[in-house]
């Protein structure tokens, strides 16, 4: 009987890790999007949301570290799988194509490593811009907190940021298009009927998430920041 570590590092274990961490990250992304949508709420909604998170204090740090670990594990497993695949087929085919249905092979499935790596870079830049970026202060309910909203609105007036984010979010959608269904299969979903439903729902969710995320920067950019109709800047 292998140890738990050996089991997790086995071919099946790697996929289980990838699936579990992937699903966790999916939930994080969903909550993140819901949080982001606060930008369309009342003038203070977004900063209030940010303040609420900061109020968790040390717990927030635990969550952040946990998130980083999960992200690193997910990325590491993905890269390991990619490296192993390169070793498993040292010589490529001259011609290669999919046989079609019932294959689930797609641009999405074939680009998991590529979209994944881009998303790693994106996440680093993203954290650097917003989580570690310089924000002004704002007073909310008599307390001083970070003015994250102004930072967001200002940042996305820059076309590089706005379009860069939009492209990254398309890649996120691409990653999730295969990834959501794949995570369930990695965790043992074998029923063909359920699998077909999950695949469709997964692709739909990926598209919705991508649209949800990329809508914000593009809307801010084309709407002219605080002039945009739905952005309530006071």
């Amino acid at each position: 009987m292998p140890s738990i570590t050996d089991a997790l590092l086995s071919q099946v274990g790697r996929k289980i890790l990838s699936g579990l961490t992937g699903l966790f990250l999916l939930f994080f992304v969903i909550f993140h999007l819901i949080g982001n949508l606060a930008i369309f709420g009342s003038p203070d909604a977004m900063n209030a949301y940010s303040m609420m998170l900061h109020d968790f204090g040390p717990l927030l740090w635990v969550a952040r570290i946990g998130l980083v670990i999960i992200f690193v594990v997910h990325a590491w497993v993905g890269i390991a799988i990619w490296l192993r695949k390169r070793k498993a087929r040292p010589q490529d085919y001259k011609v290669y194509s999919s046989k079609g249905d019932p294959s689930r092979q797609s641009l999405s499935s074939r680009s998991m490593a590529f979209t994944g790596v881009i998303l790693i870079i994106f996440v680093i830049l993203h954290v650097n811009t917003f989580a570690l970026g310089d924000t002004g202060d704002v007073v909310l309910d008599g307390r001083t907190t970070h003015d994250i909203k102004t930072l967001v609105v200002d940042t996305f007036q820059d076309p590089v940021y706005a379009f860069g984010y939009a492209i990254a979010m398309v890649l996120l959608g691409t990653h999730l298009g295969h990834g959501i269904w794949s995570a369930f299969v990695s965790l043992g979903m074998s029923s063909r009927k359920v699998s077909a439903v999950v695949y469709t729902v997964g692709v739909a969710a990926a598209v919705l998430l991508a649209i949800g995320f990329l809508f914000i920067p593009l809307y801010i950019y084309f709407g002219g920041g605080c002039d945009a109709a739905l952005i309530n800047c006071n």
């Binding site: 695949k85 294959s103 074939r110 299969v185 074998s190 029923s191």
Partner: peptide, 26 residues
């Protein structure tokens, strides 16, 4: 290599074995 759930194997399988086998294995 590892299985990334492309499902191409089922499409080319001359006897049509379902990738459900892989999920069951996990």
């Amino acid at each position: 290599g590892d299985c990334s759930n492309h499902g191409e194997c089922e499409a080319v399988c001359p006897v049509g074995i379902s990738i459900s086998a892989i999920a069951e294995m996990r």
